[in-house]
């Protein structure tokens, strides 16, 4: 017999024996919680104090799994001529049986009311129980980790950049901009979308 298959078999024995001597990397899950990275997409948490019921998340959701109800309230402001109107959130629910964890709602929220939480233990025995109301979503807010530090050499966050920019000089010092040519009229079918 040639040495080919025999060396292969010997190598198989050697590899398994070496693996037998090493500790396995298994983390026994229910006893040891997994160490998840800060950007894990476990569940979507709601900071309802920040929500203005703008409905952007519900509209952008690709499978329409966000349910929002609200009503308007009038608020009397001292010294104002008229009463102001304010949106009050009545219901905010996410159906996690439909959610596909794309994160568009988190991205699109203009007031930072939605966050990714690494929490993932919310299995249910009935699919109808997968719709979680705002109390539960608010509770998950406590599990949202602080944003991780930027990579070395990365540009500053936009907010920080904006705040640390030197104030603009007076308008007169700026050079006049050249006149821009007027835009051509948009094609009519573009307006349909």
């Amino acid at each position: 017999m040639s040495g080919g298959p025999l060396t292969g078999l010997a190598r198989g024995l050697a590899v398994t024996l070496a693996t037998l001597g090493r500790r396995s990397h298994t983390a026994e899950y229910p006893d040891h919680k997994p160490d998840l990275p800060p950007r894990s997409r476990g569940v979507i948490a709601l900071l309802e104090e920040n929500c203005t019921v703008c409905m952007l998340c519900a509209r952008e959701c690709p499978d329409w799994c966000i349910y929002i109800d609200s009503h308007k309230e009038t608020v009397q402001v001292e010294g104002a001529a008229r009463a102001r109107q304010r949106n009050v959130l009545d219901r905010f629910a996410i159906d996690f049986s439909l959610c596909m964890y794309c994160g568009i709602c988190v991205e699109v929220c203009p007031f930072d009311a939605l966050f990714w939480s690494p929490e993932f233990e919310y299995a249910e025995t009935d699919i109808a129980d997968m719709t979680h109301e705002r109390e539960r979503l608010r509770e998950w807010m406590w599990t949202v980790p602080p944003p991780p530090a930027l990579d070395p050499g990365a540009p500053e966050a936009k907010e920080v950049e904006q705040a640390t920019k030197p104030a603009r000089g007076p308008r007169a010092e700026r050079t006049e901009r050249p006149e821009r040519p007027s835009r051509p009229p948009r094609p009519s079918q573009g307006e349909a979308t």
């Binding site: 398994t16 024996l17 693996t19 037998l20 090493r22 396995s24 990397h25 298994t26 026994e28």
Partner: peptide, 13 residues
């Protein structure tokens, strides 16, 4: 147990 550890697992625990 032996098979599990040879495959980098833990087997029944």
């Amino acid at each position: 147990k032996v098979m599990a550890h040879m495959q980098g697992r833990m087997g029944p625990m």
